[in-house]
Simulated scan of single mutants.
Amino acid sequence: MSTAIDIAALDPASRDAGAVAHYGDPVREQRLLEEGVGLVDRSHRTVIAVPGDDRLSWLHSLTTQHLEKLRPGQGTELLVLSPHGHVEHHAMVTDDGTTTWLDTEPGNGDLLVYLERMRFMMRVEPVDVTADWAVLSLVGPGTDDALKSLGVDEELDEPDTLDVPGAKFAQGTQPPRPSTIYRVASLGDKSATVAKFGAGWVRRVGNGADLLVPRAEKDRIDIPRAGLWAYEAVRVAARRPRYGFETDHRTLPAEAGFTAPAVHLEKGCYRGQETVARVHHLGRPPRKLVLLHLDGIATDELPAPGTPITLNERAVGFVGTAVRHHELGQVALALVKNNVKDDAQLRIGESTAQIDS
């Protein structure tokens, strides 16, 4: 394996400091993730374990997702909203029958603080287990073959996502289940796998799979590696939002594209639910997630997350994640006002940007 270049060495202030940026050739690593399969170390993500008999009903009451009927061997996504419906946390979810696992953004201790504050008399014991467990991601069309090489013989279906209903949809349109279901298999149910990894699980997601493995074992998996730069380039090209990058303090779920995977539109009351319903039924959130082409960027530096976007000298949005994609060139996800037209001549500082329509 080539020398791993840590993001902290390139950008000490990055929220991804601690992850590997690349292994010497970011372009080759992007092609690996798009044409074959690569393993991305995302072990800087925060992992929270929630054991307890009341875990699913409790999380159901606190979040945007329908979790009461989440079954062992299933995963999904959820959001925690402010009272005004703004996104405060995003987490990927997996349940193994005794524990619900949440993996969220690096250093997101605030989510655990919130969960502990909301325990009351519920039989739940949320705890940060990041020191012991690591999240890794397989990405690419060769994911299923890679899983078989790890001893996962079970066929894991692609994600099952409900269609987002139109505005003012009739009650009963959405079944009482998570809006997205990811299939999950244990990494501890085969003797060879137990010997290699100890325990953990695999969660099949779009174009890949997430693994939870003991942190001490994370470097023993014999699959070609790719850095986070390649992972983020593929994510941006697929227009998948990331909390803290394509969001700010007033982002609504519908603005950033979180509705389909993380929001159940017919579940009971939860904090921020009124805003979610109102925005959906009006059918036009204030802002929208777009892909920008940054061919007009005048420097070698890509714009940082949060960089303002202007139109006719008026602020209309901000840059989320900017990357160098091996086919698309310099591109970025951005959140802009909904009335910004696709052919608008946008500016980022002294440089120009164009929406990919």
Results as ranks from 00 to 15, higher is better:
residue 217 E to K: 15
residue 34 E to Y: 02
residue 104 T to P: 04
residue 195 A to M: 08
residue 343 D to H: 10
residue 155 E to R: 12
residue 34 E to N: 07
residue 327 E to N: 05
residue 346 L to V: 07
residue 276 V to S: 11
residue 176 P to R: 13
residue 295 D to Y: 06
residue 308 P to F: 07
residue 18 G to A: 05
residue 186 S to E: 01
residue 218 K to I: 10
residue 281 H to P: 00
residue 253 P to A: 10
residue 96 D to W: 09
residue 52 G to T: 10
residue 240 R to H: 04
residue 224 P to E: 15
residue 277 A to P: 06
residue 288 K to P: 04
residue 258 F to V: 11
residue 30 Q to H: 11
residue 70 L to A: 12
residue 130 T to P: 09
residue 204 R to K: 10
residue 194 V to D: 00
residue 116 E to S: 10
residue 149 S to T: 07
residue 294 L to N: 07
residue 15 R to T: 04
residue 65 Q to G: 14
residue 153 D to A: 14
residue 240 R to I: 10
residue 116 E to R: 15
residue 334 A to I: 02
residue 26 P to Q: 03
residue 119 R to G: 00
residue 246 E to T: 06
residue 213 V to S: 10
residue 78 L to R: 12
residue 310 T to Q: 11
residue 289 L to W: 08
residue 322 A to S: 12
residue 250 R to Q: 11
residue 316 V to Y: 05
residue 110 D to C: 05
residue 80 V to E: 09
residue 223 I to R: 04
residue 7 I to S: 07
residue 229 W to D: 15
residue 65 Q to W: 05
residue 127 V to H: 02
residue 67 L to H: 13
residue 309 I to K: 15
residue 85 G to N: 03
residue 177 R to H: 02
residue 341 K to L: 09
residue 281 H to C: 00
residue 3 T to P: 02
residue 345 Q to D: 12
residue 353 A to M: 04
residue 316 V to P: 01
residue 91 A to C: 05
residue 170 A to D: 04
residue 135 V to F: 06
residue 292 L to A: 06
residue 253 P to G: 12
residue 342 D to C: 05
residue 211 L to T: 01
residue 320 G to M: 01
residue 299 T to C: 05
residue 125 E to H: 14
residue 54 D to E: 08
residue 319 V to F: 05
residue 326 H to Q: 06
residue 295 D to Q: 13
residue 208 G to R: 15
residue 357 S to F: 09
residue 357 S to C: 10
residue 350 E to M: 06
residue 86 H to G: 02
residue 229 W to H: 12
residue 117 R to M: 11
residue 350 E to K: 11
residue 255 E to D: 15
residue 72 P to R: 13
residue 253 P to R: 14
residue 123 R to T: 00
residue 303 P to I: 05
residue 29 E to Y: 05
residue 171 Q to P: 04
residue 332 A to R: 01
residue 191 S to R: 06
residue 8 A to W: 00
residue 92 M to D: 13
residue 261 P to G: 08
residue 149 S to V: 01
residue 276 V to R: 12
residue 53 D to S: 12
